[in-house]
Structure formats: structure tokens, C-alpha cells
Design a protein around this nucleic acid. Structure first.
Length: 253
DNA sequence: GGGCGCGAATACCCTCGAAT
DNA sequence: ATTCGAGGGTATTCGCGCCC
């Protein structure tokens, strides 16, 4: 059992290297053109100036790239990959039921759990509550059709990190009908090992030191800055010239 | 038919101001 | 002081038109 859990830790590290980091890198590499961003002309220069003290193209580029690369991009990727993580690293627990990410035998109460996975305690909004409940509802219907006995307490939401106190109100809403199991407790029920959560987060923390993206980010920012500069130039030209120039741009790439 | 490009749809994630 | 919902943003998948 324990060796099986150690195996999970190893495969989690491998998963991080092979899945998460490459996605993150390729999503970062894409950011060399202004067209990759949704701009807010009210704020773009302000952000640049707030960050560096000036609003030159490179500052604007930094103000666009940093929050994307270190915020939304990696967070979304991590969340998306959780699904795959569940079927590859938590091999043997993958669910075939639509809307359910994993199935597992709860090591605490011994019952089979049908579980939707979320990354953290703040990752859903009001609309998501309905979506999640909807998924559970269809599972229940399907179960009835197939004469399976699934109780509300066996349809759960598993949250990878955080503590019960951290859970947002939206999760608490779900918790009124379906258990929301979070962090250490979740991993304990999944693996039967009290300390598994810490072991896993430590392990991933170790992997982190293998990566240094500073060069890549610098490169991306420089080419984005160039694109911003060209865009500013184009703006100065008349509309007709601009159109012609843009046409030319297409082929330059 | 098979591969490519692209937009729509879907699923994810997070923070902040308003309401209480 | 806390709770709650709206707002804001990204990644991946899928289907469709198009070209080879």
C-alpha cells in the first residue's frame, strides 16, 4: 500500500515535468505578439507605469506577460491537467462516467466515491455551483437507470489543496448537499495515508527547482515589445498605409 | 481522405467591491 | 468584519470549411 503511494508521488513528479511544464512553456512561447492579448486601453499604460515607472513598449510588454504567465495561464493549465492527472497518476481510479473525474474507494468509510476534482478552495463561482450540481444530478439519474445505488454522500467534490476553512461560500453551498473534501483530508481518503498530502506537495516543490524560465520570459517580452513598437508606429500612419502595412506584416511572419 | 486553421463552446481559475 | 456574487481572464477540445 505504502509503496503504491510512493509510486503515486513519483508519477506526480513525472506528470508535472511531462505535462504541466511543457504546456506552460508553450503557452508562454505564444505570447510574442500583441494579438495574443486582450487589451484594455484604459489600463495598459497605467499598468506598465505602475510596474516599471514608465510606459515604453518593453514595460507594456512586461505588464502583459508577467500576470499572464505567472497567474491565469499556469493556474488554468494546472486545473485543466488535473483531469489527466487523475487518470494517469491516479491510475486505476479513472471514471468512465461523464462529469465525474475519478472514482475511488474511500479509505475512511470504505464506500465507492464518485468525485469531481477542483484545484483549490476558491476556484468556482456562482454559476459553477449549478454546473457541478447538474453533473451530480445526471449521474444519479444514470445510476437509477442502471439500478446502481448511489447516495448523495457518495457524490463528492475533491479539492486538491487548501483547508476546510478556506472553502469559499460557493463550495459551502455544494457541501450542503454533497460532501466537499479538501486538501489533506482528500488525499487521506484517497490513499489511506495521513501524511500523503504533505509528501505530495513536498515532492512537487522539489521538481520546481529544476526549472528556470527567466531566459524564455525575457525573450518573449522582447519580441512582444517589438510588436508593440511596430503597432505604435502603424498607428501613426494613415489608415490606408496602415492597411497596406498590416497586409505586409502577415507575410513577414 | 487527411491535415490545417480558426472560431465557438466548454471547462478552468481567481480577486475584488457591494451587500449584509 | 464577513459573506457573496459579479466580473475578469485562460486553455483545450471540437466541429467546420478549406486546401492538398
Amino acid at each position: 500500500m505504502t509503496s503504491q503511494n510512493d509510486d503515486i508521488v513519483e508519477r506526480a513528479k513525472e506528470f508535472f515535468r511531462k505535462e504541466i511544464v511543457p504546456s506552460h512553456i508553450s503557452n508562454t512561447e505564444k505570447l510574442t505578439r500583441l494579438s495574443e492579448f486582450k487589451l484594455n486601453p484604459f489600463l495598459d499604460k497605467y499598468k506598465a507605469s505602475f510596474l516599471t515607472g514608465n510606459d515604453d513598449p518593453k514595460s507594456i510588454a512586461k505588464a502583459l506577460v508577467y500576470p499572464r504567465v505567472l497567474g491565469t495561464s499556469i493556474n488554468t493549465t494546472f486545473g485543466n491537467k488535473l483531469q489527466k492527472f487523475c487518470s494517469e497518476v491516479l491510475e486505476g481510479f479513472a471514471s468512465t462516467t461523464s462529469g465525474i473525474d475519478i472514482e475511488f474507494i474511500d479509505k475512511v468509510d470504505g464506500r465507492r466515491k464518485y468525485c469531481q476534482i477542483k484545484a483549490g478552495p476558491n476556484t468556482i463561482n456562482k454559476d459553477d455551483v449549478e454546473t457541478i450540481k447538474g453533473h451530480f444530478a445526471s449521474v444519479k439519474n444514470l445510476a437509477r437507470t442502471n439500478n446502481l445505488n448511489i447516495g448523495f454522500n457518495d457524490l463528492i467534490v475533491g479539492v486538491f489543496y487548501g483547508t476546510p476553512e478556506d472553502l469559499s461560500g460557493h463550495y459551502k453551498k455544494i457541501n450542503q448537499e454533497h460532501p466537499v473534501i479538501i486538501g489533506a483530508e482528500f488525499w487521506y481518503r484517497l490513499t489511506g495515508e495521513k501524511d500523503f498530502y504533505r509528501k505530495l506537495t513536498d515532492a512537487i516543490g522539489d521538481v520546481a527547482s529544476e526549472y528556470d524560465g527567466s531566459e524564455l520570459i525575457e525573450k518573449v517580452i522582447n519580441s512582444l515589445a517589438k510588436d508593440i513598437e511596430e503597432t505604435i508606429e502603424l498607428k501613426k500612419l494613415g489608415t490606408e498605409k496602415k492597411m497596406a502595412a498590416e497586409e505586409k506584416e502577415k507575410y513577414k511572419i
